[in-house]
Nucleic acid binder design. Structure first.
Lengths: 145, 145
DNA sequence: TAATAATACTTGATATATCAAGCAAAACTA
DNA sequence: TAGTTTTGCTTGATATATCAAGTATTATTA
């Protein structure tokens, strides 16, 4: 198979471009509602609210380094969106909970997050989405071999 | 259209996952050859070698902030991969050139970069790629409206 | 059970991302 | 042509990414 080799023709360029455009849109809308929260922080808030998770679990789920996770969580605690305590059954692990402020923020954020997704996926068909997911998954597998 | 709303079912999750996997693969292979160069730095080296570009132009092409570009270029100059001078026709602008060390590095890097792309796209058809590009482009447009 | 290994983070150092503010040169305009 | 705006880039501050090294705590193993 012949594949383009100039940087700007590669599919990776398109992928980067798209994800950056989506992140930009999301950040704008989120900041518009709550100025001191980022896209990832909103996602983390949502994850912790849905299910009790450790930092390590969150990091694995959203492809972040554990060190970054420590710092992001630290900031979210400092801004009072999260409450962090130690797990008494395993004193290495921390227990993360959304604070009242965090829950309130989340109530505002969820419709915004959903709206962002709708906006980004406007005019796409179910086939488009499934296709996209399928092809990306192939690439993902290739990269991990 | 009904679209999934749980974070891990969304297509954006797949996109992030894929681009991170690809970046990880690329970085590993690049570092293996030249330990002090990153994926973006390799790309920048390639761009500058192909065509004379200003920092601003490079930043726009690879979706980077101008401030980041100043710092990345600064490091590449410091590591002696690039030579930076001022453009005498427009003293605001800088002229960037690959140094001999940069050119040598690039010679090593180009086959690696190409190989990474081949690896990542293994078993994909031309249709897959075109499809992917087309769908991503739709999302990209939606995000920019 | 003592030594070792693994786990769940944390910290330091450096690079990059992002926003805001600033600077000098160039372009534009009244 | 003087004043204003734009352009190309830089710097500062803060957040995040990444790698390496370190600290408790828990689990394993000889």
């Amino acid at each position: 198979m012949k594949i383009s080799h100039t940087p700007f023709d590669t599919i990776f360029y398109s992928i980067e471009e798209t994800i950056k455009a989506y992140r930009k849109l999301s950040l704008k809308e989120i900041k518009n509602a709550i100025s001191d929260i980022t896209v990832d922080q909103a996602l983390i808030l949502q994850m912790i609210n849905d299910k009790q998770l450790t930092q390590t679990e969150i990091a694995d789920l959203i492809f972040k380094d554990y060190a970054s996770m420590t710092r992001i969580i630290g900031l979210m605690v400092k801004k009072n969106y999260l409450i962090k305590t130690t797990n008494e059954n395993d004193r290495r692990a921390s227990v993360l909970k959304t604070s009242p402020k965090g829950e309130l923020a989340l109530k505002q954020l969820i419709p915004i997050i959903n709206q962002n997704r709708e906006t980004a996926l406007n005019n796409l068909t179910i086939e488009d989405i499934n296709n996209l997911k399928h092809i990306l998954n192939k690439i993902n597998q290739n990269c991990k071999k």
